[in-house]
Simulated scan of single mutants.
Amino acid sequence: MKRIILFTILASLALPCFSIVTKHDVNKDKYLAKNVPEFLIDMPGEGHGVLIKPNWIVTVAHLIFSDYTGKEIVIHGKKFTIEKVIIHHNAKKPNSSLFEGDAKPLMDFMKTTSDVALIKLTEDVSHVQPIALYSDSDELGKEITAFGRGSTGDGKQGSIFETKRQKVLRTMTNRVDLAEGNWISITLDDNKNALELEGIDGSGDSGGPLIIEKNGKQYLTGLFSWDYVEGDLKSFKHGLYGGKSYQVRISNYINWLNETIKSN
């Protein structure tokens, strides 16, 4: 389940979100998504976006590799033209010096940025339905379902970077174990707390949706963004049990999303 200086360098460290990494003792076929969610959009190159209005897609800012204005994006078999891309004003790139040595300065920096962007299409998407946004700030402890086409692996061996080329759509479940400020976070557990299809994001999953179901309705609550690292960056292995990743917290950006869409 990479990009500009931040995520290009982190890719070599296995740091950015990698596709769904699974439990080692569960049949891997159980993680295969039976259907592609209508709101899930594949971004140009890799990663994902989510249809939240008939002509608006939300994604993570680090997937905006170039000027996408006027370019085409395929949404469930149909081509649409991108009218504009609006990146959050607080989306920041770290200095290259942060990619050496202890991970803490880089992790501290990542927590201060806003990895979110909006894409406006020139016309409405009418053949699939958008997903509603989760606006409540009670995500902590709630179960989420997520999707991604990135790399895979399991909690014992970690994420296998080369598997991202398969572009296989997988799904997983987890629980939100942190919800503060810009971020929600999940951990890959291997104990009594682990869910049946416990998983965590892998390389190429960036922008993939985290979904909460409430009163029978699905809501977008997060977007896969980055992985948490402790210790030396060079020795980090992504996707092992106990690993943690951070996701864009949609509820924290509700006002920015709604106001930006309204004013554009």
Rank of each mutant, 00 (worst) to 15 (best):
I211A: 05
L140A: 07
M110I: 10
G101L: 06
I75L: 09
K167V: 09
N255R: 12
H76Q: 06
T22D: 14
K120I: 04
K111H: 07
L169D: 01
S12K: 08
V116H: 04
R149K: 12
F18T: 05
T122P: 00
E143R: 08
K167W: 01
E123W: 07
K93F: 06
F39W: 13
L257I: 15
K214Y: 09
H88R: 02
I86Y: 01
D29A: 09
L133N: 04
V248F: 03
V26S: 11
L195C: 00
M107V: 02
K234V: 12
T145D: 02
I131S: 04
G199F: 06
V248Q: 03
L51E: 13
K78D: 08
H238F: 00
Y134G: 01
G45A: 11
D138Y: 12
G216A: 11
K237R: 05
L195M: 13
D29Y: 12
S96P: 07
K30S: 06
H89L: 01
A14P: 01
F18N: 05
I131H: 04
L223W: 03
R149H: 00
N27A: 15
G207R: 09
I131Y: 02
G242F: 00
L233K: 02
Q166N: 11
I211F: 01
D227T: 14
H24I: 07
K2G: 08
N215E: 12
L188I: 11
K53C: 14
E180N: 08
D29K: 15
M43R: 15
W56Y: 15
P54N: 14
T221K: 02
H62W: 13
W56L: 08
K34W: 07
L63A: 11
T113M: 10
L233W: 03
I41S: 11
A33C: 10
P54I: 15
I57E: 07
S96G: 00
L169M: 12
K84L: 03
K2I: 09
Q166A: 15
L121D: 06
E38G: 04
V128S: 05
E139G: 03
S66M: 14
L51P: 06
K84A: 06
K92F: 01
H48K: 05
G158Q: 04
W56D: 09
F236K: 10
V125T: 13
K28S: 15
G158L: 03
G101W: 07
E162K: 08
T59V: 14
I211E: 03
F18R: 08
L197C: 14
N35Y: 14
D189H: 15
F80T: 01
A194V: 15
I73P: 10
N255Q: 13
L233R: 00
H127I: 09
E100H: 09
F109D: 04
K84T: 07
G207M: 00
T112G: 05
E162W: 00
D232R: 14
F39K: 02
K92A: 07
R149G: 00
E213N: 14
K167R: 15
R3W: 09
I57V: 15
G158F: 02
L223M: 07
G49R: 11
D190H: 12
L10Y: 04
K93Y: 03
I75P: 02
K104L: 15
L13Y: 08
N264R: 13
G243N: 15
I57A: 09
K84F: 01
D205W: 03
L106C: 03
K262T: 11
V58D: 01
K104S: 08
I261H: 13
I254S: 05
G242L: 13
I144F: 01
T260E: 12
F7D: 14
T113A: 04
K111T: 11
E213P: 06
V116M: 07
